[in-house]
Amino acid sequence: MTPTLQVFLIVSAALFSTGLLGALSRRHAIFILIGIEMMLAAANLNFIAFWRFSPQSQPPTGVMIAIFSIAIAAAEAAVGLALVIAVYRHYRTTNVDHLDQLKG
């Protein structure tokens, strides 16, 4: 028996939830970025799985979207980590609980 689309979607949902857990429960900005990247990877897995299990189209749309999504995730990680470094320079911390200057 070969894996169906269903099990791929379940694994992808589990990966997404794990990324969500990391992004929600951590207080360190880099951990939160790791969680977000994991959620993006889970979304990519969904795109590739749907492409593989659907009737073929020319061009391969799911693969294309996954490639663009990886490129955008790389840009997001670069800017996010630059923000972490900039915040660390100002506040000497990367704990998001301490960044409450705008709090009313």
Binding site: H28, I30, L33, I34, A77, A78, L81, V84, I85, Y88, R92, T93, T94, N95
Partner: peptide, 12 residues
């Protein structure tokens, strides 16, 4: 990049 950022914000 993440490893570099960890090393640059190491004190925390």
């Amino acid at each position: 990049l993440i490893v570099f950022t960890i090393l640059l914000t190491r004190r925390d």
